[in-house]
């Protein structure tokens, strides 16, 4: 039963307007192969469920230590919980007693049918152009689930889109392609060594998959986070542009997503250090100058958000 296939989902976000055509529902799949230092969704990196704490929401009721069977929670001087990551096994019993939702469980197991029912809620808004977008994390890490979800959506006439970093095991992309209608594909860096240095993986698989998705005929929008000092060199811009030209010719498009630090709070919630502490959010003019550089190379380039 494909609709009973299970996946790990961190969050389902309705009314997404930046992730594909129309008004969309974004399904954030948990787990990623890359370890990008600029990642703004750190809660989607690990494959398994994790407990996080948003201190600002805590009302200091003091219930959570008692709810924890592992004695992993103590209270600090102000009455705010401190989680011992060594002891915590992410059982989420503390989350259940936290009424103000300061303690959050990132990631829960859902069947395709459950996710589909959530996606279907906004059916009336998809009428013109919207639909579902699988995002993450890397959705291709759960390709069987995504394929089954997309099949279910297509049966119901719901448009499907995928947001991918392109790094996935052999066969994963091929599995999803037949039921995919739109692809947002990240090209983070063209140099394999730099790519490995900042994301933990080389880019050969990614470039390969980029070719495959273009050849399949699915509409693709290539894009990239724009990280000052990391992927904004003339050399990388030229290499990216020529790769795009090779794939898409005169119709080549590229979307830049300027680096921002909004994800920092999530690192704190997950008790992880923020990797790019020194890096500042760039000025708006900066993104515009990079956009212009792509334009000058014949790429129709836009800036997201």
């Amino acid at each position: 039963m494909p609709e009973m296939v299970k996946g790990i989902v961190t969050h389902i976000q309705r009314f997404s307007v930046h992730d594909g055509p129309g008004i969309r529902t974004l399904v954030f799949m948990k787990g990623c192969y890359l370890r990008c230092q600029w990642c703004d969704n750190p809660e989607t990196i690990n494959h398994s469920a994790e407990v996080g704490l948003v201190k600002a929401h805590c009302n200091k009721c003091g219930k959570c230590p008692g709810a924890c069977p592992e004695q992993a929670i103590t209270l600090d001087a102000e009455g705010i919980p401190v989680i011992d990551s060594q002891r915590c096994n992410n059982c989420a019993k503390c989350v259940a007693v936290c009424l103000p939702e300061a303690l959050i469980l990132y990631g829960r197991e859902m069947t395709v049918e459950e996710v589909f029912q959530e996606v279907k809620q906004d059916e009336i808004f998809y009428e013109k152009s919207g639909g579902v977008t699988a995002s993450g994390g890397e959705p291709l890490r759960q390709a069987t689930f995504v394929k089954a979800l997309f099949e279910r959506c297509r049966e119901a006439g719901i448009h499907t889109a995928l947001e991918t970093c392109g790094f996935a095991p052999a066969g994963a992309l091929e599995q999803v392609l037949p039921v995919l209608q739109y692809c947002l594909f990240d090209l983070k860096h063209m140099n394999p060594d730099v790519h490995r240095a900042y994301t933990g993986q080389p880019n050969d698989v990614i470039l390969d998959n980029a070719r495959k998705v273009v050849e399949s005929g699915v509409t693709v929008l290539f894009r990239s986070p724009l990280i000052p000092g990391i992927n904004d060199s003339q050399e990388n811009i030229k290499a990216t542009a020529s790769f795009l030209k090779e794939l898409q010719g005169d119709k080549a498009c590229f979307e830049l997503m300027p680096y921002h630090r909004l994800g920092k709070a999530k690192y704190e919630a997950l008790r992880r250090p923020y990797p790019l502490e020194e890096l500042k959010s760039p000025e708006p003019d900066y993104a515009e100058s990079i956009r212009q550089a792509y334009q000058d190379l014949g790429i129709h380039c836009t800036i997201s958000k």
């Binding site: 309705r14 009314f15 906004d122 009336i124 808004f125």
Partner: peptide
């Protein structure tokens, strides 16, 4: 808490 489309629904 579920965004504008949920409000409209």
């Amino acid at each position: 808490r579920k965004g504008p489309t949920a409000v409209l629904k």
